[in-house]
Design a protein around this nucleic acid. Structure first.
Lengths: 260, 260
DNA sequence: ATTTGTGAAAATATTCACAGCG
DNA sequence: CGCTGTGAATATTTTCACAAAT
């Protein structure tokens, strides 16, 4: 993801780890930590694959991109694999991140223990609302966005999290980039424009539900038996009651990423 | 996504919309709504593609899976496209969802306006903590998890959102499935085991940061100039060596999806 | 005996580039 | 003309299946 940036190539051979693999490494890492916590020293690709929810061939292929860290006939040493995946992901250092937008969601993110436990340190919280500056959340003072440059430099921040309303997100992204941030995690439901060299990943809460909606509908259609001429067919009643003949409701959205 | 389920096929031809396309439809829908709000009646694939952050060939191919709704030489009528995508995604009905786990994140999700504005209605909030039952959040009473079955049936709920601690997530998923839910959005950083026919999508906040970490590291390496002979290369000890001075930090994680 | 690591095959996804329609 | 819709060409990802290693 991260836009449609082409992978770097060297002499015709694709260099580095495939993007699809990168996206799964954190899942393996999670599974390995869980295994380690149960006192497990070694795992087979099959066991780890089950724990990670993928098939074992895929897991082995993925790991093979990092090097050859298994023992044939035995499996993988958990702690070694944890180290290698951590290294591959760049988690041997603790990244400083700034979080911009301390609304409903930003508040929750600020308190998210998973960030700290998985390699990240929130260096500062920012909000544009002068009212909220100085407020203390999760042990951190909310600072004004105008301090961004200074903090990013002083704390060597390279990752920014945006949890502002959509309307503010692009402006915040610009300021983050300007300040020197080169990776952005965007929770605002909008597309960000950033220069080359800056990576953006997005998390869109409702989008995931909409994907589930698609599959729900498909399941309902199948249960009802293929009818209509071309698949999508007429939408009758089935589960979910309100068979709105009309398109999805629309309420003013651009307000807040999270907020009532 | 949603496990490794094979697409349904009919008579050799792949029936339905490719998964990659489904995942982008909500993005197009968002962009179209934004365009509509600016009073735009028609868009070209190029314009919409820019607004959605994809390339225009991909956009056209994606839309072609829904049917032929554009006009050559002109573009797409915004409102028609909104209708067609909404229909394809199953958003012509308003889905009822239940949310289980009203911690820090669950609280934020309960108040998320984007759910309501994009086709979903939170039918009820649940928590296992008896202390919190009865508490009112975002206009909804927190109910005890034991009421789940009743609510799911009465309100025709087919989608569940899990925002409990990891440790509780599987148990909650089991109860959701048992109650009749067939789609789950999981915010707990763990893999869920569900029967065939149930779709799961996950959102893992820290995972996204870890992916960014990978790319940050790569950028840093490149900036420092390629060293070592073949890229990742020379990590001193091949195999076996904990070459890392220190692996990623580890703190008790399994506590809460969000919470300090 | 097992289980890894991996070529080769199959399936998906993306991009190109242009015929064809309005 | 301009722009869509789509075959054909690429690229990427997944899966198979087995030789090699312990």
């Amino acid at each position: 993801m991260s836009g449609d940036r082409p992978r770097i190539r060297a002499a015709g051979r694709t260099r580095g780890v495939p993007e699809a693999t990168v996206a799964r490494l954190p899942v393996y890492l999670r599974a390995l930590h869980a295994l380690a916590d149960t006192g497990c020293d070694t795992v087979s690709s099959e066991e780890l694959a089950v724990a990670a929810g993928v098939n074992s061939a895929k897991l082995r292929k993925d790991l093979s991109h990092l090097g050859s860290y298994g023992t044939r006939g035995v499996g993988y040493e958990v702690s070694l694999l944890v180290d290698q995946i951590s290294r591959a992901l760049g988690l041997t250092q603790r990244w400083a991140v700034v979080l911009v937008g301390v609304g409903n969601l930003g508040h929750a993110l600020a308190g998210y223990a998973g960030f700290a436990s998985r390699g990240f340190r929130i260096a500062a919280l920012f909000d544009a609302d002068a009212e909220r500056v100085g407020e203390r959340i999760a042990g951190l003072d909310i600072r004004h966005i105008d301090d961004l440059d200074r903090v990013v430099e002083e704390e060597q921040v390279s990752i920014g999290v945006i949890s502002t309303p959509s309307a503010a997100a692009q402006e915040v992204a610009d300021r983050l980039v300007e300040a020197g941030v080169t990776s952005i995690l965007n929770f605002a439901p909008c597309v960000l424009q950033v220069p080359d060299g800056v990576d953006v990943r997005k998390v869109d809460l409702a989008l995931e539900l909409q994907i589930l909606s698609f599959h729900e509908q498909r399941k309902a259609d199948i249960a009802k038996g293929p009818h209509g001429v071309n698949g999508t067919a007429i939408n009758g009643t089935m589960k979910g009651g309100a068979v709105t003949p009309l398109p999805a409701p629309r309420v003013d959205d651009a307000r807040e990423v999270v907020g009532q």
